[in-house]
């Protein structure tokens, strides 16, 4: 199991040919209290970098981008009623969507944990 990161603070945890996507603890800390999460439709095809979801804090809306090209296979519907899970457990219960990865080689263009850690120093 590998986890990769984007410079926009999304993580993708790879499990076979599927990636579980959310935002990093650093990102949730920067955004503050999340009050609303808009999730993509299951079945939606996205290209790497496309807008996939939106998280709203009290103050502002922020876009979440698809870290890789693929198709949405599942979304975390718990976030509809409990958007605060993104704050309390962004890498666990606060995941946002699962994407069927079209081209695994795109993962190589993303940051590894050390590379991402350097970015947020």
């Amino acid at each position: 199991m590998t986890t990769k990161f984007t410079p926009d603070h999304e993580y993708i945890r790879v499990e076979g040919s599927t990636g579980i996507v959310g935002i990093t603890p650093y990102a949730q800390e920067q955004l503050g209290d999340i009050v609303f999460v808009e999730l993509p439709a299951v079945g939606k095809a996205l290209k790497k970098g496309d807008e996939a979801a939106v998280v709203e804090s009290v103050k502002a809306a922020s876009e979440i981008y698809a870290p890789v090209t693929g198709t949405i296979v599942e979304v975390n519907s718990l976030l509809t009623n409990e958007p605060g899970l993104v704050n309390t457990d962004s890498e666990g219960a606060g995941w946002m969507f699962k994407i069927a990865i079209s081209d695994a080689s795109e993962l190589d263009t993303l940051l590894d944990a050390d590379g991402y850690a350097e970015l947020t120093l």
Partner: peptide, 12 residues
Amino acid sequence: PVQYPTGIMTEH
């Protein structure tokens, strides 16, 4: 300051 560490919701 837009917020302190506790965040907008708690401050509100």
